[in-house]
Design a protein around this nucleic acid. Sequence first.
DNA 1: CTCATTAACGTTTTT
DNA 2: CGTTAATGAG
Length: 765
Amino acid sequence: MINGILDTQKLLAKLETLLKSLNTEQKKAVETTKGPVMIIAGAGSGKTRVITFRIAYIINKENCAPNQILALTFTNKAANEMRSRVEEILGTGSTRGLWIGTFHSNFARLLRQHADRLGFTSDYTIYDADDSKNLIKQIITELGIATDVLAPNAVQGKISMAKNRLVTPEQMSQNASDFISEKTAEVFYKYNERLQKNNALDFDDLLIKPIKLFNEHPEILAHYQERFQYIMIDEYQDTNRAQYIVAKMLAGQHRNICVVGDDAQSIYSWRGADIANILGFQNDYKEATICRLEENYRCTKTILKVANTVISNNKEQLEKTLYTSNETGEPVTLFEATDERREAEKVAMAIRERKLSSGNQNSDFAIFYRTNAQSRALEDALRFNGIAYRVFGGVSFYKRKEIKDIVAYLRFILNSRDEESLLRIINFPARGVGETSLKRLKDIAIEEGFSLYEAICRATHYDLQNRLISALNDFRMLIEDLREIAQQHTAYEVVAELLRKTRLLEILKNENTAEANARYDNLQEFLNFARQFCDKSAEDPSLNAFLQSASLATDQDNADANGNQVTLMTIHAAKGLEFPVVFVTGLEERLFPLNPDEPRELEEERRLFYVALTRAEKKLYVSFAKSRYKFGQSFPAKRSRFIEELDGGSVVTEGGKLLDEIRLQDAEKSRYHYDDSEYTSRSNFSDRAQSRRVAPAASRQTSLTSSSAKKSAIAVGMKVQHKIFGTGKVMAVQGSGDDTKIKVFFRGAGEKTLVLKYANLTVVE
DNA sequence: CTCATTAACGTTTTT
DNA sequence: CGTTAATGAG
């Protein structure tokens, strides 16, 4: 606690010591509290330290109450970490009232207080991406459009993007020029209508509804403008237009807005993030102070050099040079493997070796990949080698059926307008209300002008089967009872009572299958979450607060680093983290980079690669496989162009040769082998166990007509190009040698059987 | 109406 | 390949 003169003096001394530990730019960033500030924080430049010091500094030196500071982060985890680090400086309880959290959670909270102004109640439900998708799908179906004409996924993406850019359904409709976009706009309109009717907001609404609120009620805006004397935004390069606008509105009064970011680490444009926000900060705030944190404290010289070389291939970037006074360190190691299983094996072996030779422990290692699906092979290899690991991401806890079901109950208890949740629970656990009965009830509701739930409550008044009526009555009683409990008890008690009354745990226990047991455990864990939540947030342990936190929680958040385990995660999830030893896997064209055709996307992939590389403190491994399973089939893979962008003087292969030497060799070879574009072959660069190779890597333009390689070069599942039929997929390969015939399915031309020798096909990927 | 088997589908990345 | 939505028997 901070009280007493002595403590105050001690604290001041502590702050002075901390300030002295900062470099000049960092110090400037902390001490410039007034006016707009932009902190360009390179990877590993002590950004979190600067932000937390700055908050502590403002509270202490500027004598600012914590509840007058708004700190916006990208993840809950970052927010929690910053909060606890401020408390480390100023003492336990010193951050009470501080508005620190994600945009989404801070504004969800703000909206709860003013929901009535927007036609919602404070018990509004937050729909996650899945919920939105289901709703969109439903609306498309109701419009009588097939979901393969109007793909729910695509529509959701467009709607979300529109919301992020503050485009209304009406505007979208005006700009629509074809059937698809017209219908998308219509779905958009109906979707919003439905959200309103259900008293629900989606993730994007949490950002754009505050803007609407502030525009329609200037007095509310004025209140928050006055209140938030200091605003800080982390990961500013990843903010979207809506976030940009709302931040600008809130900073309008005091103009003490401090944004922190690194354009080189912008990796969320697919989610609507606009790099222009950070690039154009000075246009909005001409008087802004710019701080450049360019000294890296994390990586070795070698790692930093490799990362800098890679990112220099990007055209769009702010000028900056990241440097370090750390040691040179070990070279980067490049692994080449025949397939993803051997790649994983090599990673596991390297971890085992390093634990013996370099004294590393499991928690020192992180393995990164581009897509979640890649974790499987890695997990298998680690398990096989007895290495403890932990996977982040993948199927989220909150996306599991049993959890979504229980959450649906909780939502409905609070918000009886939430019809989506009602539909989910009306027959869960099974109480004999099937499709037919439901249809009946829906019809009644429409006829009588009631909501579905009202119709259910009035079941006795209609001509329905007795069994159904009693089932519906029981359901209503259940809901009413729980609703009453929720009024005066904590979220934990509501969840416990819900589980008791529905006897869900018993049912699962009696089933006693592996799957039922897993679900049982998940429900128990959920109950634990509820208990923890209530313990932790004693100020507001209400069901409402718990649901809000649960809706916005992600798996990243419970990333408790305790336990000596290797970390597996996507690179997106790895942002902001650091590990002594890092493996970046799957460096293959069309995996990483995923889509190299679009130059802007390619640059983003490169930034992603840059993020991955700069997570490593001491040692970095980069790997790729020459074939990879996808949808249960093996596909040939080509090494990523990013590998060619690595600094050849800093990277060695398994054989210990510098990449530069190999490149030199290959350059000489290619003088004599013009046809061989793949320079991985025939050197000690290649895998020793060639006999087990599934299929040789097919390069983009390899012609299949040169006879000998024919049979082995073409395989089922490959995409090929034909002069007349266009691109097609190989369905079957028959015969061998010059008689080889293949069946190819061409889009447009249908399935064709071709004699390979004459077909003159080109492998596309 | 429920449970089982079968068909279709998909992979970026996440608040 | 693994998961989930759709179909059909009991």
